[in-house]
Design a protein around this nucleic acid. Structure first.
Lengths: 194, 194
DNA sequence: GTCTATACTTGGATAGAC
DNA sequence: GTCTATCCAAGTATAGAC
């Protein structure tokens, strides 16, 4: 599957539905039949656009990662301080979570990771690496400029915040009144700003 | 399923294997066939001990929650300060994660939550409630005694730390050199101790 | 590009012998 | 309590008509 292949309108609808299903019930929780019902096409037609479930999964993650990268660029451009950037970053997750308690695509696939095809697993890893690298950069600037204070390395702070946001969505699913990723981020940040 | 039903030796082995499978590949990622191969019994024999997959799942979570509650009591008894208790708590997750990158049973099921039977979902929720309540108590004492400092309520700190630990395991699965729940907890605590 | 039909496999579950 | 045998449903995938 080429990252830059343009998806036909039908393929896009299928990928949209598949993404939502991954975020709701996980990769192992949905079948072509579910997609079929949601898009109003037969299973065989889904297979015309995506040869296998793995192909579909890979496409979903690649699209998701691409959209996330664009969002990171926007955050970088629109905000100048580390605390502002980190809160805007957390809001990306907050928006996802507010949508029917959807999980991050890669949070879900990360949990299921050990049962996934290697190609999917590798795309999930890539998503996390991109996020940690971006957060690392933001944290590093924040520590250098003094807008953030911590005895820990930027890289460690990056993975900690990412873990917190993914975890807030996961745990929030089972809570009556979850704090959510945005609030969780504020709590973490209040420990980095003195 | 009664919480206090004693499990026969065979039932215990089955539950042990099922728990490990949940932590590795998730509830939707394993079948009776996998268990059958691991315990060396036929599928029909598994069904003799657990009428359905849901029954088995419920038993696994109830056992896991019971063992966790006992661990919480031990931590409470062996440590007296909030920071020490929280680190010991994080080590419960660290130990799980060190074991072949196993996830917390309820972290995994929490992710899959929307595809699970209501009875299972409810057991998962109970696990999280117990953990948040315990952490809330520890945080509250810490804030009162001054061993912890934060502008946030104990309850919020509790859910934040739980989210961080669950998330550290989830994200850690996809990282080459994950920081892990213990280290993540240290990072969070360093923001609560000034 | 979408359909019907179908092949093949796996998964959860039950009946009944031992 | 464990087994063999079997049922039925669901899931992935393919062939071939339209």
């Amino acid at each position: 599957m080429n990252t830059h292949t343009e998806l036909s309108p039908s393929a896009q609808r299928i990928a949209d539905v598949a993404q939502a299903l991954v975020q709701e019930v996980g990769y192992n929780g949905f079948s072509f039949e579910h997609i079929s019902q949601a898009v109003g096409m037969r299973k065989a037609s889904i297979h015309h656009h995506f040869g296998s479930k793995v192909d579909l999964g890979v496409t979903v993650v690649q699209r998701y990662t691409g959209q996330f990268e664009e969002a990171l660029r926007q955050v970088q451009k629109q905000f100048s301080s580390a605390p502002e950037r980190l809160l805007a970053y957390a809001d990306l997750f907050e928006t996802t979570f507010q949508n029917n308690h959807h999980l991050c695509v890669c949070g879900m696939l990360g949990a299921e990771s050990n049962s996934l095809d290697a190609s999917l697993k590798s795309e999930v890893k890539r998503f996390f690496q991109i996020n940690v690298a971006w957060l690392n950069h933001v944290m590093d600037e924040g520590l250098a400029s003094g807008s953030l204070r911590s005895p820990h390395h930027a890289k460690v702070l990056a993975e900690t915040l990412l873990s917190l946001l993914e975890g807030a969505m996961l745990v929030g699913r089972s809570m009556s009144a979850p704090i959510g990723p945005r609030h969780a981020c504020e709590v973490f940040l209040s420990g980095l700003i003195h």
